[in-house]
Every structure is written in structure tokens, then in C-alpha cells.
Design a protein around this nucleic acid. Structure first.
Lengths: 151, 151
DNA sequence: ATTATTAGGTTTAGAAACTATACTAAATTT
DNA sequence: AAATTTAGTATAGTTTCTAAACCTAATAAT
């Protein structure tokens, strides 16, 4: 009993500490630019924006702000930069003349798929070290984590 | 067979996509200040610095830079701010007169334990939704992820 | 029909969190 | 004793964001 209790406390601590370590690692990762496809080096914000636009279809500026969890002003600035780099294009909204629709250029799509590929390969490395069941449980945990963080 | 293959591809994609979503959520979280204990609102960088110093013992400036994965110059700036907020103190290294040792003040320790408590409670919420075995597997996955990211 | 409000975007100034570079001073090597 | 390394600081500049003010178009209210 005592042993069990101490184990549980221990797990509790190391578990949350490891999660903290993961956050630390991600902070480090999310600071440096990376190169995807033929587009030059892209900052994390740029890549996440491209990711949020997606290769299919178009997205409203304000919708983009919502997806990225940043202000409209920040989106304006990001899109301006990506437009200069020729990774996205603006086009007027068909019905609402206030709206601006954003979509990826060919170069932007290329960067997006290259990024997806990197992510998939990275994730495959992880999968390779776990059994199918373990992966399933791990993903369940990630899902729970996501739903907690959404609030 | 075909069904199996398509499933695997599918899992592969949704898994890496969910991981991407987690990163997005963490980015959002790591942008806003939070209040811990009696210390006022602390920026993520400030809290992570306090976390890296720890409540026990003292840390060299350069060691701190290593732990946080940032430059010495950045540490100098962070510590200066935390010193003004009276959360850390500088003291000379006993043997090496070039060195500066950093440690938490009482107020700093309070912020640290308050932060740990928040993390533990958060993690307990997650634990509550998974069985013991699942938690164990989940933590294994987080560990693997950490070791991948270290490189 | 006007007015008022809301919603979509942009602009600008400024904050936060860095980096890179140059520097000082102390410790170590050679 | 000179050269190099290590610890830390200072400063200027970059990136990524927010907040607030603003403009214009769409919608609601009266």
C-alpha cells in the first residue's frame, strides 16, 4: 500500500515533469526557421500559417486568425510576408466585398506537403518504437491533452 | 489487407495531425502570462527560468543558458528582470570569481511550487481519464518524443 | 430610409523574447 | 608571460506578436 502510494506520487511527478520537458523542447524547436521544399527557410509562424490554410480551398483572414489563435492584425502581417514570398495569394470574397480569401500558391502547396512529409516521417519514427496498441493509447492521450488545452 | 493498409495510413496521418494540433495549442498557451502564487503575472519565459533554477540549490548563469537552450545574453536579460521582481538573487561563485550563482528567493520558491501545483493538477486531470496502464504507455510515448526532439 | 452597430481588414506603435556581436575580466593552457 | 578559454554583460537589431485606432462594407434597429 505504502509502496503503491509512493509509486503513484512518483509517477505523478515524473509524468508532469516530463510533460514540462516536452514543452521546453518544443519551445526550442519553435524558435528556429526550417526549410521546406523549394520555398526558402520558413519561420515556425509562417509554416503554421501555411498549415492552417491548407492545400485545399481558401480561408478567410478572420477564420485564419481563429485557427491560429492570434489577432487579425498579426494575420495581416503574416499574410503580407507570405505574399511577398509568393507562398499565398489574396483574392476577394465572392459575396462579401469586405472579405479576403487566402489560398496557397503552387509553391505554398509544395512547402505544405514537404512539411507534412517531415511530420509524417517524424511520427513514423515514433510509431516504429511502439506497438500498434501503444500507439493507439498514446494518441488517445494526446487527444485528451488537446481537449484540455482547448479551454 | 487493403482495409488494413488504408487504416494504417489513416492512423498515421491523424496521429501526426493531432500532434501538430498539440503544438499549435502549446504555442498559444506559451504566449500569455499567468499568475503563480503571490508573484504577479509571469511571462512563460520567466516561469520556465524559475523552473530551471529550481527551489533547491543554486545554478550558474551559463548552466541556466544550457538548460533553457538560449544564449547567455538572453539569460542575463531574464535574470535582470526576475531580480527586479525579487524572485531570484545573484551571488558570487565561491571559488571562481567570474561565476554568478542564481537562486530563488522565498517569493521565487513560492511561484515555483505554485507552478508545479498547477502542472500536477493539470496532469492529474489527464490521469483521471486514463487507466494506470494507459498512463504508463502514454508516458513512455512522451519520453520517446522527448528523446527524438533532443537532437 | 436613415442611423447605429457589427464584422472584416489594415496600420502603427510598442512589448517580449530572443540572437549576434563585441566587449571585460578572470581562469587555464602552453 | 603570453595566448586561449570561460563567465558574464551590454547593445543593437530581428521576429512575432498585441492593442488601439481606424476604414469600409454589411446588417440591424427604429
Amino acid at each position: 500500500m505504502d509502496k503503491n502510494k509512493s509509486n503513484q506520487l512518483n509517477d505523478n511527478n515524473t509524468g508532469s515533469r516530463n510533460l514540462g520537458r516536452l514543452i521546453m523542447q518544443l519551445r526550442r524547436l519553435e524558435r528556429q526557421p526550417h526549410t521546406f521544399g523549394s520555398a526558402g527557410p520558413l519561420t515556425p509562424s509562417e509554416i503554421h500559417t501555411i498549415e492552417a490554410i491548407g492545400s485545399e480551398g481558401t480561408v478567410l483572414m478572420s477564420e485564419l486568425a481563429g485557427r491560429l489563435g492570434i489577432t487579425k492584425g498579426a494575420v495581416t502581417q503574416l499574410i503580407a510576408r507570405l505574399e511577398i514570398k509568393e507562398l499565398v495569394v489574396r483574392s476577394p470574397h465572392p459575396n462579401d466585398s469586405r472579405g479576403t480569401m487566402i489560398s496557397l500558391t503552387e509553391k505554398g502547396k509544395e512547402a505544405n506537403t514537404a512539411h507534412e512529409e517531415v511530420q509524417r516521417q517524424f511520427y513514423n519514427q515514433l510509431r516504429a518504437q511502439l506497438s500498434e496498441q501503444e500507439i493507439e493509447i498514446f494518441e488517445k492521450g494526446i487527444d485528451k491533452l488537446n481537449s484540455f488545452l482547448r479551454k
